[in-house]
Amino acid sequence: MAFLTNDYFERDVLTVARDLIGIELVWQGCSGIIVETEAYAVEGDPACHTATRPSARVFVKSQPPGTAYVYFNYGMYWLFNLLVKGGERDGLILIRALDPRLGLAEMQQRRQRPKVTDLCSGPGKLALALGIGGIHHGAPLAGRHRLKGCGLRPGPENLEVLSDVRVGISQAADFPWRYLARDNPHVSVKHGRVKPPVTRHFASDPLMASSARSSPPR
Rank of each mutant, 00 (worst) to 15 (best):
H136T: 00
G151Q: 06
V116W: 04
P123W: 00
F202Y: 15
L83C: 06
S215Q: 15
Q109L: 10
G87N: 10
R146K: 12
P217L: 12
D174F: 04
D7Q: 14
L83P: 09
R153G: 02
L207E: 13
I93M: 03
E157T: 09
R96T: 03
I34P: 03
D183W: 04
I33W: 02
E157Y: 08
L104R: 11
S163I: 02
V167M: 11
R182K: 13
L126Q: 02
G22A: 07
Y71V: 00
I132E: 07
E38G: 03
G75M: 05
W177F: 15
R218A: 10
W27R: 06
V167Q: 10
G86V: 05
G149Q: 11
V167L: 12
V70E: 02
V165I: 12
I135T: 13
A47N: 11
Y77I: 00
G149A: 07
G168V: 12
S215M: 13
E43N: 12
R213F: 13
V35L: 11
P123E: 05
T15P: 08
V194Y: 11
V161L: 03
V194Q: 15
V26R: 15
G122T: 02
S62R: 15
G192M: 09
R101G: 05
G192N: 04
S62H: 11
Y40S: 03
L83W: 08
S62M: 12
E43D: 14
Q28R: 15
G131Y: 05
R144N: 08
G192V: 02
G103S: 07
A139C: 10
L152A: 10
V165Y: 14
Y77E: 07
L147C: 03
R11E: 12
F9G: 02
E160R: 15
E88F: 03
Q28G: 06
K85V: 05
D45S: 07
P54S: 04
A51M: 09
H137V: 00
Y74S: 09
G155W: 01
R193K: 15
D99W: 14
T37P: 06
T117Q: 07
P154G: 08
S62F: 00
A2N: 14
F202R: 13
Y74T: 01
D19F: 08
I34A: 02
T52E: 01
R11F: 00
Q112L: 07
